[in-house]
């Protein structure tokens, strides 16, 4: 591996200042599961690695009970999310997505922020955060700004972050009652494999437990960036959600997707799986909503 100097700032401001000092010869590093591989393989060769792991507070995960807002620090690892009862119970779509990223060894190191910034079209971590209308907080040389997670991605391996900016946290607005959410990483196997296709669905229904008031259908590996099938979402909103309606939404989502042939799978197969899995994930959302309604 090409030698580098490891810089370990204690605050975000210090990290940004270090980047300002070393500019393009520096890279930020969170969990390291992508950056170290890229340095080893010679895809990047920074002279300085700015290690964000020692900055207090960046791996903080909590729900503000007053506002209902969920705050996920960018350095929270996939394993921390997977093992959080709060996530498992209230945000099943996040649990579904992170529990099959890489392997446990990778999840113990890799972070949700790093997963987003790496900006691969298959990023399992991005889909649930888009479905949950998450916002990313970016801190850089020119101060702070917020960007919806859905607007974070430009193209494969490229985000809207400007040089020196750091993703510090993701916030998820309070969940409306009667929300269900689910994600499936669909492929030959879950572990140590990128998905053939990733499908996340979130549904909110009215008090009748049937009429859809909000729908989110988010797809991974269905285009150059994670994307939302907005037309399919609109098809569900305002309607009583049935298996047939979900089948229709699945078809529309497949049409809206920008799937292509790749070494991992063919476009027609991906479309078929979107069609099938949007329906299945929609039904799972309804199950979750009904189960919670019975408990209440």
């Amino acid at each position: 591996m090409k030698p580098f100097t490891l810089l370990t700032p204690a605050t975000v401001e210090e990290a940004v200042a270090l980047f300002g000092q070393h500019k393009e010869t520096a890279r930020y590093m969170a969990g390291g599961t992508d950056v170290i591989v890229k340095v080893k393989e010679g895809w990047m060769g920074p002279d300085y690695l700015i290690n964000l792991k020692k900055i207090p507070g960046l791996n903080d995960l909590h729900k503000n009970e007053a506002t209902g807002e969920l705050s996920i620090g960018a350095l929270v690892t996939h394993a921390m999310l997977e093992q959080s009862l709060l996530i498992r119970n209230a945000y099943p779509i996040i649990y579904d997505a992170v529990s099959n990223i890489g392997s446990l060894q990778v999840r113990n190191m890799g972070t949700i922020g790093g997963n987003l910034i790496n900006a691969v079209p298959s990023a399992d971590g991005a889909i649930p955060l888009i479905a949950l209308d998450g916002t990313a907080l970016l801190v850089g040389p020119d101060g702070e700004r917020s960007v919806m997670v859905k607007d974070l991605f430009v193209k494969p391996y490229e985000t809207v972050l400007t040089p020196g900016e750091i993703l510090t946290r993701i916030t998820i607005p309070a969940q409306v009652p009667r929300t269900g959410s689910a994600y499936i990483k669909f492929g030959r196997r879950a572990a140590m494999e990128l998905p053939l296709i990733g499908i996340g669905v979130l549904l909110v229904v009215d008090e009748d437990l049937s009429t859809c008031t909000r729908a989110r259908i988010c797809l991974g590996v269905a285009g150059p960036t994670p994307l939302r099938a907005v037309k399919a979402e609109q098809m569900l909103e305002g309607q009583p959600v049935t298996s047939d309606l979900l089948t229709g939404a699945g078809k529309l989502a497949a049409e809206e997707s920008q799937v292509r042939d790749s070494v991992r799978g063919q476009a027609w197969h991906r479309k078929e799986m979107i069609r099938v899995q949007v329906r299945r994930m929609g039904l799972r959302c309804l199950d979750i909503i009904n189960q919670k309604a019975r408990q209440a």
Partner: peptide, 11 residues
């Protein structure tokens, strides 16, 4: 925690 020591910096 089980980790991959090949990706974990000694520092």
């Amino acid at each position: 925690l089980a980790v991959n020591s090949c990706l974990y910096l000694a520092a």
